[in-house]
Design a binder for these strands. Sequence first.
RNA 1: GGGCGCAUAGCUCAGUUGGUUCAGAGCACCUGGUUUACACCCAGGGGGUCGGGGGUUCGAAUCCCUCUGCGCCCACCA
Length: 887
Amino acid sequence: MSTNNQKLFLSMPIPPKYDALAVENKWYDYWMTNKYFHSIPDNREPYTIVIPPPNVTGILHMGHMLNNTIQDVLVRRARLKGKNACWVPGTDHASIATEAKVVARLKEQGINKNDLSRAEFMKYAWDWTDEFGGVILQQLKKLGCSCDWDRTKFTLNDDMSESVIKVFIDLFNKGLIYRGFRMVNWDPQAQTTLSDEEVIFEERLGNLYYLNYKIQDSDEVITIATTRPETILGDAAICINPNDERHTHLKGKKAIVPLCGRIIPIIEDDYVDIEFGTGCLKVTPAHDQNDKVLGDKHQLEVIEIFNLDATLNSFGMHYEGQDRFVVRKKIAKELETKGYLIKTEEYLHKVGTSERTKEVIEPRLSDQWFLKMETLAKPAIKAVLEDQSINLFPKKFENTYRHWMENIRDWNISRQLFWGQQIPAYYYGDGKDDFVVSNSIEGALELAKNKSGNLGLLISDLTQDKDVLDTWFSSWLWPMSVFDGIRNPENEDIKYYYPTNDLVTGPDILFFWVARMIVAGYELKDQKPFTNVYFTGLVRDKQRRKMSKSLGNSPDALKLIEDFGADGVRVGLLLSSAAGNDLMFDEALCQQGKAFGNKIWNAFRLIDGWKVAEIPQPEYAATATDWYQAKFQKTLVEIEDHFSKYRLSDALMTTYKLIWDDFCSWLLEMVKPAYEAPIDKKTYDSVVSILESNLKILHPFMPFLTEEIWQTLEKRTPKQALIISSWPEIKSYDHSILEGFEFTSEVVSGIRSIRKEKNIAFKNPIDLLVLNNESQVKNFDSVISKLGNITSLTYTTTSVDNALSFRVKSNEYFIPANDAIDVEAEILKLEDELKYTEGFLKSVRKKLSNERFVSGAPEQVVASEKKKDADAVAKIETLKASLINLK
RNA sequence: GGGCGCAUAGCUCAGUUGGUUCAGAGCACCUGGUUUACACCCAGGGGGUCGGGGGUUCGAAUCCCUCUGCGCCCACCA
């Protein structure tokens, strides 16, 4: 901004209301232009946060707003504390979610994904990404996020993908990645497998069907209970418990599967719960995890009856091509008609669903890639639970972390999708082990020649694995890969910024992401990825419901920013959101944030409007500014303490009260000159300096408003911008002045109460007489006079007749009444106070007369009780004297 | 089924090793207030037997037991 513009701007009247919209874009541009967010390694201490990358095609929702506000507060504070703050932004390719969206869009255009080649599909997906990708990052700018945008990463960028492939190959060569034929979680809609973590178990009301199976060469039947009658076509056995006497006679016999008539053995295994159902279990190894285990143990046939989309295949006979749930109803009907179904009970059970598509998961046997987790988990467990080199906030999540890590299972990392990093495995034959892993097909060819001994192999003989890697297999490298620490482990950035400092995320991805990053950090770099993890809660609505699109209870984030300003929204979100606690969002909170901004704005207008004159500083002003300096220091210590414990809501609330109550309501009222009267320079300078300190500690929470006031107060060069100024240092302060003020504020409140009680308007000055028993410093008398609109404050040694009175500790204050006062009412008031104080004294003495209390309690506590005793005695004397006087 | 956590004012929550400052904060509510920064404001005020019951202690919101009501995570019972 040029000097002329600055003058022009300053000459314009400052608007009475803070106009967030007009101000925010201006300062964001200013910060960007001056590259304050950009970080390069230097000799300062680094402070690093990597953003939890949102889905590239996502839009900003309340969870993002909360999460990123917290990160920005931490980053801005670190920057003010002189650290080299670096907040790396970026987006995630979110394979399943994004691919599902692209597939849906193609479908609208009449295109079937299965008709496309990988390359063709990828073209569509990239188009989609280019169209919608990164919108969310633009939205974060509106919120004020001070990310280093020059470092923006996307998990599918070439360099990121190279890192992922390199890690896959390394882990494969270490023997940690293997290919296995296993029962996996199949999502029939997305037509891919999912990791165990991506399966959400939901309680559903289903039926338990009791079916009769005929026993071969017999008139007998055996009854089994199942929730999935359609899977009988894949039955391989009936299993009974060897200890179950009801079925002893069936041992070694064979049963006949209804409808298809297949003969299956009756096997015995104590896995079967005698108590459940009929004590007989039908075994379907192809479609149930447990049945697979039983099948392996008893060498049962594996009969797969589903297609990839969960319709029945040829084993489904006349149901072939129909959906599993449709068939369930139809087959139940048929079984009933034919007399196999003997009864149906309602049954509440848990059903696994896909986190992304909500589709019911179908357990399915297939070849997949897995990462062995058990040994990898060890250092990650130690780091969090033993060494405390990584701290979780709140701490309660350590239990959850421990449980998962100690019971960790191998991670299925392959997905039957296009949108992701294709697995770098190449097959050269039909054998189970006829593959090699390499980052290029040329490299693969060499390896394949060696492995197979067939030197005549050609590139055209190789086929790359069709699967891609789980998205989290790229996200788990994020804190390293954003600094290119995988490909170039010795580069300057990774050495400087890693390990990062704080990670801010939701507890829902503790396993998906946080735990795995810790694992990756130790395995690949032998270093933790971050030191502190701050878990935010879920943003809910006033009725505690989750915010969701389907409920329509999620406010439009950008609309909120328009209505309340980014600062207002930030404050609103942070006001009541302790780490790990859900936040009950209410627009009223943002309104409170906006009102706070306006309050500060008006305090600024007041100060800015003062005419400064070379006049002596009044005593009250000197006392007031001294007091505030001490108060500020004391509060700063509290704020630091809150930050050190990641109690950001408390840090904000402490700042809020300091500025609203202490600064605006007390300090400014104390120093404020009479209307249109000038202020002395000394006081003015002090107040401006105080305001500047306030702006500094408020800046992380309300960056726009504070920068606007900072820059309007005075013409600043880019090097003097608030965003890069310095956080106030903790200095020692005068405690006694704070005690003096506490006492004073009680006196002022006493005066105000009397004024209100007796309807004496503030503009009417009054007199005040003090019967002094306290050894309080009298420095504050001028303050009392100012805030109480006292004409004369005088000390007296006796009670004052015909006056209104109140007491603070054992001091008595009298306000002479112009009209006769209601003596009866005064007497009643005094008697009430006396009665209360005597009762209080009695309870204190009871305590003090208790031998065991005096000997058992700490000295400090006993002393304080004795002090209470003495204070109460003094006050009782005062009260009695006044009563005698009145009577 | 296993584990963890929570219950304090109308609402959202603080309350550290039991004892100065223990019953608090913000919002909401009630009363009064418009020339003099701000009605997005100022001043004053009411409000809780700390979920129920029992115990330990001189002393419990705080420690122990138990009951009730919630929440979360994990788990292959058809």
